[in-house]
Simulated scan of single mutants.
Amino acid sequence: MGDFNLALVIVAIIVCVLVFVFNVYLLVNYQHPDDANQAYFPKFVVVLGLSVAAISILMLPADVANRQACQHAIYNGACNLTLPMKDLWLAIYILDAVLVFFIIPFAMFYYEGDQDKSVGKRIKSALLWVITTAIVCGLVLGILYGLVGKVDFTVRHLSSATTAFPSTWGFSSSQQCIGGSSAHQCSAYIASASSETTWTMRSTFPEYVVALATIVGSVLFAIFGGVGIACLPLGLIFSFIRRPKAVITRSQYIKEATELGKKARELKKAADALHQEERGGNKGRKWRKNVKAVEKVHFDFGK
């Protein structure tokens, strides 16, 4: 039993490390060349988010294997020596919620802010937005927890009479209760339908957060997953319909290439002029406007 638990812990650690390394490989392989060796914080957030998403899926087989570790134990308390899966489930889902509502928005607000501002001002602006988001989320969670943070269980209310200890017991399939033939409320099989009642209890706040995150995630996955599945074949069909159907002649090719070369030289000249102005410290409103215009021309040129 102990060997199995130790092996499960080792496998869990190895899998977590492999998931993290694989996500780092994905980030390095598919990142834009201009983002190399910079913006490490959002990259860490991306890797952490992908790792948490993958681990939350791999938690299910880990939970099954963890239950098998104490299924055939011959002593009480064997399951207490296995992995604390309930705590791990709560930690994963709460970390997921923190990423979605706090860490990822902070990274977006910080790196999408005005690049001309100082680092301190960008952090301050991002923190203000995140604090506002936290207040709204806290109010929503608190109000919903007070209103619907309860769990209802349908149970049967069973009771039994008391009697002196007899010398013989007159129980049968039709009479399973103490008190004679009129007593039928101690057995769930023969109790009347009126014995059903609702047992209401308030869930703990972490479990409530996990349940709410699961519901919201399932709804969003159903919406965006359905839209993605529907749009994928449509995108492929439209790509096939809009494919190039004609081959231009050599003279047309030379003409188009000449015009593209002329536009490329003009674009490079404008970019060099902006670089010179940037090195000279002239970064006013006109310079930013020209930068946006050059970026737009560059984007249109790349189509």
Rank of each mutant, 00 (worst) to 15 (best):
residue 1 M to T: 07
residue 7 A to C: 07
residue 13 I to R: 06
residue 15 V to R: 03
residue 17 V to Y: 06
residue 18 L to A: 13
residue 20 F to W: 14
residue 35 D to W: 03
residue 35 D to Y: 04
residue 46 V to Y: 12
residue 54 A to L: 07
residue 56 S to D: 01
residue 56 S to A: 13
residue 57 I to D: 05
residue 61 P to I: 02
residue 67 R to K: 11
residue 71 Q to Y: 15
residue 73 A to N: 12
residue 78 A to E: 04
residue 95 L to C: 13
residue 96 D to T: 13
residue 101 F to W: 07
residue 110 Y to E: 00
residue 114 D to Y: 01
residue 119 V to M: 06
residue 123 I to K: 10
residue 123 I to V: 15
residue 124 K to V: 03
residue 129 W to I: 00
residue 130 V to A: 07
residue 132 T to F: 10
residue 137 C to V: 09
residue 138 G to I: 01
residue 143 I to G: 07
residue 148 V to W: 04
residue 150 K to L: 14
residue 151 V to M: 05
residue 152 D to L: 05
residue 156 R to A: 13
residue 156 R to K: 15
residue 162 T to F: 08
residue 163 T to L: 09
residue 163 T to D: 09
residue 170 G to T: 11
residue 184 H to E: 13
residue 185 Q to W: 09
residue 192 S to P: 04
residue 197 T to I: 11
residue 204 T to A: 12
residue 206 P to H: 12
residue 209 V to K: 01
residue 209 V to F: 00
residue 215 I to L: 14
residue 220 L to K: 04
residue 223 I to V: 15
residue 228 G to N: 08
residue 229 I to P: 01
residue 237 I to R: 13
residue 240 F to K: 14
residue 241 I to G: 11
residue 241 I to R: 12
residue 251 S to Y: 08
residue 252 Q to T: 06
residue 254 I to W: 05
residue 259 E to W: 15
residue 266 E to T: 13
residue 269 K to H: 08
residue 269 K to M: 07
residue 269 K to F: 08
residue 270 A to Y: 04
residue 286 K to W: 03
residue 290 N to S: 13
residue 291 V to A: 02
residue 293 A to Q: 12
residue 298 H to I: 13
residue 298 H to T: 15
residue 299 F to N: 06
residue 302 G to L: 13
residue 302 G to M: 14
